[in-house]
Each structure stands twice: as structure tokens, then as C-alpha cells.
């Protein structure tokens, strides 16, 4: 081995990435023992090894900016950060749910369109066609009663639940087509009321009917004959 080869191998020998071949180590060792100049070069190289380690450590001491790789990926792929994406999806979902809910609430509560004809014809329209329909309606309102069967239910104009003697009772209003005869009927179950059983004088415009466990108090206007038109 000559000095040129020895100096070359020396240069490689201090590099972790440049491992010497085992076959080269022994000849290099022999050359260093025989050549004072190369031995001195090896000694100097060893002496600056500390320098190299210190410089290498400082060379790699470069802080990496936080978040740069993620931002770079956004730029490369035209994407927003994952966190933003999650928030945007959640926000979009929340906005959609809100919009659907608001639409649903509006739809349910939206104003009903009423025409002039609806208003004009309403008084002539019956609410229920028979007493059984009224009983069913009142049952849904928590009032289990039997409506009077003597009325023409095509003339029924309203069904109300009113308070009488601190109890909830049904009040049915019938109006004849000519508007000259009308009657309001209170339905008083005998299980709740002990109502008078006698007839009332005709000029008081009230009539009491007791039938099938109920007292029907009928307040009427117009002539009794007119009322008869209402009564079947």
C-alpha cells in the first residue's frame, strides 16, 4: 500500500457510512506503522474527530417549523387541514339538521290558507253528521258522555267543553239555517249532577230533558215552533 491509498482509506475510515473492507484494515495498519508522515496524518485526523462530532451535532441542530409539513400537503393536494374538514362537516351537518327542523316546524305551523268562500260557507257547514261522531270527539278530549239524540246534527255549529259547577261539561250549539232559531245544550251526566227532573215554564226559553242517565239543559232562542224545526 502506498501513501496515496493510505490517505484515501484514512479519509474513509472516520465516516460511519464508509466502512472499510476488513481486507483493507490490516494493510493500512502496516503502512501507518512504517510511514511516519501517514501516521502523523492519522493522528491529526483522530485529533480533529472531536471537532467533527461537535460540528456535526451543531449542523443537525435546526428546528423544524411546526405545522409546515401539514401546510405543504394542503398546498400540494389542495386540501384543507383535517381538523378544519371535521369542523366543516360537523357544521354542515348541524346546519342541515337546523334547516330541516326549521322547515318542519314552519311547515307544521304555517298559516292555513283561507278563502272568502270558506268564511262565507262555514256557518252552513255541519261539524258532525251524527251524535256518535260528537261522542267520539268528546271522548278524545277526555269527556266520556252521550250527546242528545233528539237533535238534527246537520245543524250542529260548535262543540265546546265548558266549566259548569266547577266541572268540565260538553256544550253543543245548534243553529237552524234561517238563523232565527238556535239552541245551546249542556250535557250533564247523572253520575256527576243531580239535576232537576221537573219541566220548566215555557216562557223561560230553557228546556230540560232527562234521558238515558243524562240531563240535557237546552237554552234556546226563537219560537218554540222554530225550535221544533231544530228538534227531530
Amino acid at each position: 500500500m502506498d501513501c496515496q491509498d493510505a490517505r484515501l482509506l484514512l479519509a474513509f475510515s472516520d465516516r460511519p457510512s464508509e466502512k472499510l473492507d476488513p481486507a483493507e484494515i490490516q494493510p493500512l495498519q502496516h503502512h501507518l506503522e512504517a510511514c511516519p508522515d501517514c501516521a502523523l496524518a492519522a493522528e491529526r485526523q483522530q485529533a480533529v474527530r472531536g471537532f467533527d462530532l461537535a460540528i456535526g451535532s451543531a449542523m443537525r441542530d435546526v428546528p423544524i417549523p411546526i405545522g409546515q409539513p401539514a401546510m405543504l400537503k394542503q398546498q400540494l393536494f389542495g386540501e384543507r387541514p383535517v381538523l378544519w374538514k371535521r369542523w366543516s362537516v360537523a357544521s354542515a351537518a348541524a346546519a342541515l339538521i337546523f334547516a330541516l327542523t326549521a322547515s318542519g316546524v314552519y311547515y307544521v305551523n304555517r298559516p292555513t290558507v283561507v278563502t272568502t268562500n270558506d268564511l262565507l260557507t262555514w256557518p252552513q257547514q255541519g261539524i258532525a253528521s251524527n251524535a256518535e261522531d260528537v261522542d267520539s270527539f268528546l271522548e278524545k278530549q277526555g269527556l266520556n258522555v252521550r250527546s242528545p239524540r233528539v237533535f238534527d246534527y246537520s245543524l250542529l255549529r260548535s262543540v265546546e267543553i265548558v266549566e259548569f259547577q266547577k266541572r268540565r261539561v260538553a256544550k253543543l250549539t245548534f243553529i237552524a239555517n234561517d238563523e232565527k232559531v238556535s239552541a245551546s245544550v249542556l250535557v250533564l251526566p247523572h253520575r256527576q249532577f243531580d239535576a232537576p227532573n221537573q219541566d220548566i215554564q215555557a216562557n223561560l226559553s230553557i228546556r230540560i230533558i232527562n234521558e238515558d242517565g243524562y240531563t240535557y239543559a237546552i237554552y234556546y232562542q226563537g219560537r218554540l215552533d222554530g225550535l221544533l224545526r231544530v228538534l227531530n
Partner: peptide, 8 residues
């Protein structure tokens, strides 16, 4: 060289 990952 000082990054030490690269050979000559």
C-alpha cells in the same frame, strides 16, 4: 458530510 447520511 456532517449530516452523516450520505457517503462520499
Amino acid at each position: 458530510y456532517y449530516f452523516e447520511d450520505f457517503s462520499y
